[in-house]
Nucleic acid binder design. Structure first.
Lengths: 110, 110
DNA sequence: TCAAATACTTTACATTACAAAGTGATATGG
DNA sequence: CCATATCACTTTGTAATGTAAAGTATTTGA
């Protein structure tokens, strides 16, 4: 957006724009465990409604982060998996994981 | 281990929830360069409107990621800086940076 | 003395995400 | 053998979130 308007294409800026979208990092984190079907992914992610999830995986597919394979149309069977690009995001998830463990202490339950 | 509803407190899940909010990663990335005033930060981030920016830095302050120092009220002068927790997020930004450079090629301008 | 800058806030509007229900077909249990 | 659950979504209306634009009080620079 502004940064690309001001200084041309900036990979970090664009990467942040991709990853900051709601549910995106959750989706990637769960797919790191292996391919999943739509509802399976939905349950794993937890709390994302199907309309939003469908929109996210579509975008991630367009960006080459996720690949969608249709095994059968009726009964419907699909699976979502990470591409090489998606798998490369494991480093990002790991960094977030480490930070979370160090700086997000469990809130005191009263 | 996905979410708080099912398995109690999960640091990665919570960390993702913090970092996925719009503009949050941009704010942190820009503050890694050093403390900034409100409008200065706004210009650096690029495209975030003041209402949202105010709300974000307030939340980041509550989470102990950002610290706010008021130098004078009139004329107004404030500066925002990263705390130790915020500075620790440099690892996350670096991972995103690396990924962006490898997997987000500059789109062909037509 | 007038425009610009500071750090925001307010208001009204636009975009985004949400819950809930529905689709068509098959597989599963009582 | 018929209701129910499951699959992968879509549709619909509503709630939450983000946005642009303008405004606040004050000082500084021209």
């Amino acid at each position: 957006m502004s940064h690309s308007d001001d200084h041309g294409f900036c990979p970090v800026y664009e990467a942040i724009n991709v990853l900051q979208e709601k549910w995106t990092l959750h989706i990637i984190r769960n797919l790191l465990e292996g391919p999943k079907g739509f509802n399976e992914l939905s349950r794993a992610v937890g709390g994302c409604n199907p309309a939003t999830l469908a929109q996210r995986v579509e975008k991630l597919e367009a960006l080459g982060i996720v690949s969608k394979t249709i095994h059968s149309t009726m009964p419907p069977r699909t699976s979502y998996a990470l591409t090489e690009s998606g798998r490369a995001l494991q480093k990002v998830i790991e960094a977030i994981d480490l930070w979370g463990r160090q700086y997000l202490p469990e809130p005191v339950v009263g």
